[in-house]
Write a protein that binds this DNA or RNA. Sequence first.
DNA 1: ACGCAACTTTAGACATAGTCTAAAACTGCG
DNA 2: CGCAGTTTTAGACTATGTCTAAAGTTGCGT
Lengths: 139, 139
Amino acid sequence: MRTKDTETTLRDTGIQPSAQRVAVGDYVLHTDEHPSADLVWKRVRERFPWISRATVYNTLNLFVEKGLLQRLHLAEDSVIFDPKTDTHHHFIDEESGAIHDVPWDRVQVCNVETLREFEVHDYQVVMRGTLKSGRRRSH
Amino acid sequence: MRTKDTETTLRDTGIQPSAQRVAVGDYVLHTDEHPSADLVWKRVRERFPWISRATVYNTLNLFVEKGLLQRLHLAEDSVIFDPKTDTHHHFIDEESGAIHDVPWDRVQVCNVETLREFEVHDYQVVMRGTLKSGRRRSH
DNA sequence: ACGCAACTTTAGACATAGTCTAAAACTGCG
DNA sequence: CGCAGTTTTAGACTATGTCTAAAGTTGCGT
């Protein structure tokens, strides 16, 4: 049961579960659609119509603070959220604006540790481009 | 003369120069402080106090469209602009939010070309962390 | 130099994303 | 039950950015 998982995750992270927080977590901790805050609000309202905007924002901020989510600043229009499971890179489709995950070991970054003046805590490669059309099958 | 340069740059890029556009260009095409749109407005008003907010936004958008600037979505609070000279990476100081340029050849990214499903037009490494304090000189 | 068309600038209205506030509603627990 | 602390809520507020319609410039043919 996804709801059970979420409730446990919240408790393990030191977040007191509430119906609203579990509803937000059920969606945002298991999605790969890289939602903005308002998309999270919309999705959660589908199953929990009376939840308020402020609660969704508060909850997302709490999840980020507790390390359950990453806040990403990649998109043209707004900040988006990404469940912080394993680290990965991002590819942004310049035509649609859609964001795709790129598995961590598909590209390698070298010499980050040689930067003398910076202590790097984390990093990612951000790529932009288009989806290859040559890979469509049939005709 | 910087003003002359900017005017020539605009003309060469197919942008009709105007006093306002040159004033914006004089600042934003030669800065490394990674300004937000409103910081550009503030800076330009120091020398050109009657320029309007809409003009600054219009001009920045025009410069991005024509390839003179990059729009970056790295910062916590807003979109920032970066003169598109040579490509480089970015390091974000988690304490101050300041953005530092990292020269292109200080780190290397491998296997970008092996991504079958994406046609990558450009990419950069985005790093987060803190400034190493051991390297401060004097105080 | 004149005058028109096209372009640029402007102030302010509008839109959107996000935060804050103060009151109401819940929760855990003695 | 009842209190203290936490959470939720609506709506006001702020900041960032776009749009609009009018006014101002510019380029250019005559």
